[in-house]
């Protein structure tokens, strides 16, 4: 039976595929740990930034800082979409893209125009394919993003906000909730929200002045938020890939089991047939 050889070939090929997906799963697991550690390492810095911010009576300074000012009429919104450069990570990018499309649809419904700035080849290609116009795409950020990457993106978009091209900057990215869960989120970056208007009585001496500190602090916070989004995406990508590759490995295992069973059955059928032929032949001789 030619079928036997065919089956045996498929079983070998499947075994190789399984080995590849298994390796990818292990690589993703180790990278996931490293990127997640990195994500956690940024927390003290971020916490301290907000702690310093809380020492300044923000509401008082809104007038002086355009980055804090809500525009009366929002005509155009920039949406920053953070995706990955590589695939094989399940629905990770698809869920971010879906969220971004929802945000865009909502804006269209409200009669507001928007522009899409995409990080990651996957998002840029998918959105373009769906017929969206991609205003800018950044594909040179690796799965090990640096703060410099974030700063570059942040500064370009901040510029567009300040010169009035856009009235808002939003970001859509995937939140690394846990190893097993990544959730797409949409957040407002600019204008930066001023929380609470209660009077802050600070015991701190502000050097040289609250204004000068804010002038540096506000961009620092915005850069850091974008940096955090990049890291969340990097960690989530690895986690999602791990799960996707584990499923692929399990699936390969399952198919291999079924094929092996068919192979054995075919082999047995062949033997039985041969015996029947021999018995038949011997009988004829008698």
């Amino acid at each position: 039976m030619a079928n036997l050889r065919e089956l045996s070939k498929r079983i070998t090929s499947l075994g190789k595929t399984k080995q590849i997906t298994k390796t990818m799963e292990l690589v993703a697991t180790s990278r996931m740990k490293k990127t997640a550690d990195r994500l956690h390492a940024t927390r003290p810095y971020a916490d301290k930034l907000s702690q310093i911010l809380s020492q300044v009576n923000l509401a008082e300074y809104v007038e002086q800082f355009p980055l804090l000012q809500k525009r009366e009429q929002v005509k155009r919104v920039a949406i920053l979409i953070v995706t990955t450069n590589r695939g094989l990570c399940g629905a990770f990018n698809a869920s971010v893209i879906r969220m971004a499309r929802d945000v865009a649809q909502q804006l269209t419904d409200d009669g507001i125009s928007y522009e899409l700035h995409v990080i990651g080849r996957k998002g840029a290609n998918a959105l373009r394919y769906m017929g969206y116009e991609v205003a800018s795409k950044t594909t040179n950020i690796t799965d090990w993003p640096s703060f410099e990457d974030a700063r570059l993106v942040a500064e370009t978009l901040q510029e567009r906000f300040l010169d009035g091209t856009v009235d808002e900057l939003r970001i859509v990215y995937s939140n690394y909730v846990s190893v097993a869960s990544q959730k797409p989120v949409a957040e407002m970056i600019l204008p930066m929200q001023v929380e609470g208007d209660e009077e802050v009585t600070s015991e701190y001496i502000l050097e040289p002045s609250a204004e000068e500190i804010l002038e540096n602090l506000i961009p620092a916070i915005i850069n850091n938020r974008i940096f955090k989004a990049l890291l969340e995406t990097a960690a989530g990508e690895q986690a999602a890939r791990r799960v996707a590759m584990k499923n692929a490995t399990d699936n390969a295992e399952e198919i291999k089991r079924l094929l092996t069973r068919s192979y054995n059955r075919a082999r047995q059928a062949k033997i039985t047939q041969e015996i029947a032929e021999i018995v038949g032949g011997a009988e004829a001789l008698n």
Binding site: K48, I52, F147, Y204, I213, A220, N223
Partner: peptide, 16 residues
Amino acid sequence: GGFLEVSQNKVTILSD
């Protein structure tokens, strides 16, 4: 660039 905060003999320096 960056920030320095000191309180209760704890100094935190933030810089990117």
